[in-house]
Design a protein around this nucleic acid. Structure first.
Lengths: 235, 235
DNA sequence: TCGATGAAATCAGTATACCGTTTGCGTAGG
DNA sequence: CCTACGCAAACGGTATACTGATTTCATCGA
């Protein structure tokens, strides 16, 4: 289970990051260093350092009882999408311009998996294929800083994504937007990619906002007023 | 020296971050956890965790002998500026739109300090005032994710900034661009701010590239070929 | 005088231990 | 049966100790 690098912290970090990307950690779960540590047969410190790193990057929040995935507020979603809107259309346009045949094949393969998962209503597979699609076109982005920043901002949404896909109408709109982007990539038209990605961003923001709004309402009716998270600086 | 929060890691992190912002750490310096630790009268772990955080954020690189400030390659500079061009003009425009009188006063105060430092050729003060100017308008950016991302990207350049200001021609161009942005802020014209910030970005990129190019040439002639940095994952 | 060899120092990584705080539970009292 | 008090466990934070790798430096030999 622990492959990457020769360093335990990076290994644990990669492992946790992957779990977060796959929404394999629910917001009610609590990640505790000692648990992770003896699950991997190591000491607390590497696990702890990996967790702290995820906290400093904004993926987790520290609570008085273990670490939890960060839940996005509506303002968070709006703010994060504002940044995404500035970056992703442009980056995708660059990708369309600089794409190699290999990467084009990868994008198409990912798109096929998306549609297959959709036809089978296989939500986890849809999730995975969606991540693949994104990673495929990001490979064609020559600017590593741009790619890393985008990657990071997208990953914030993994905790909400499952909910989005649970909404029947949003799924089809989402996939439609994705396939239109895919078509633009195949046409090697950077400007078309840019425009369609822009449209996709707005649609995605709407989808996330409405789903999250529903989530919050449900949570509100379920329990009148209960929540506590200890302050813990991220600087 | 250690104020922020009730947590040693955050305190050390803030301290180091400030030092980096002020270019108080030269690329030849080596930051060692044990040194930092007993300089602050604490144990290794908090110092170490702070250093690792700076590494994961890309400000430092791990070497076999302590941690060092990351030196930007020319490609790094181009890539970082490509991201900044996407974000800062837009963010500054938002700031111009949403600015309060208090923040406007802060921006003006910072601009005055910039010009005063310039007239006295006080490079460290110029550096500090420049950071103040940026932080002042960033306060008017309502989107914390946007502000944090921009802040982060700007901080990457602190290691090169001193060199930029050492170049006689670049300084005046830099300050001129800054004062034009300031004027646009005073006019409360978001579009003018946006345009001037865009121009400023291109000019700044040119300045950094040329200075860094010169730095690299000098380094090359000084020693034929010497450099070693151990790989250390940043994921 | 220069290069090779080995010993010591340096430093990152990891492990273990300790402490203070928070939380949850159980028990006792109303 | 519900509330209040208190104790014990859980957990994050910090400290200290150990290990292995790498580098530096000094001594020895050519």
């Amino acid at each position: 289970m622990l492959k990457p690098s020769d360093n335990l912290v990076d290994a644990i970090y990669a492992d946790l990051r992957l779990k977060l990307q796959r929404s394999a950690v629910s917001p009610t779960d609590r990640l505790v260093d000692t648990e992770i540590a003896n699950a991997h047969g190591i000491s607390r410190m590497p696990a702890r350092e990996a967790l702290l790193r995820l906290v400093s990057e904004g993926y987790l929040v520290g609570t008085t009882r273990g670490f939890a995935v960060r839940e996005l507020s509506l303002d968070d979603i709006s703010g994060l999408f504002e940044v995404r809107r500035q970056l992703e259309p442009r980056a995708a346009a660059c990708a369309a311009r600089d794409m190699t045949p290999e990467i084009e094949a990868e994008i198409t393969a990912a798109m096929n998996r998306v549609e297959q998962a959709l036809s089978q209503s296989d939500i986890p597979a849809l999730l995975a294929a969606n991540v693949d699609f994104r990673n495929a076109w990001l490979k064609a982005v020559n600017n590593p800083h741009m790619a890393a920043t985008i990657s990071r901002f997208i990953d914030y949404f993994q905790s909400v994504r499952l909910g989005t896909f649970a909404d029947p109408g949003a799924v089809y709109q989402y996939i439609d937007g994705l396939s239109r982007i895919h078509a633009a990539f195949l046409a090697h038209d950077p400007l078309m990619v840019q425009d369609r990605m822009t449209l996709f961003m707005f649609a995605a923001e709407e989808a996330y906002l409405s789903v999250r709004r529903r989530q919050l309402e449900e949570a509100e009716t379920a329990r009148p007023a209960r929540r506590r998270t200890r302050k813990r600086g991220t600087a």
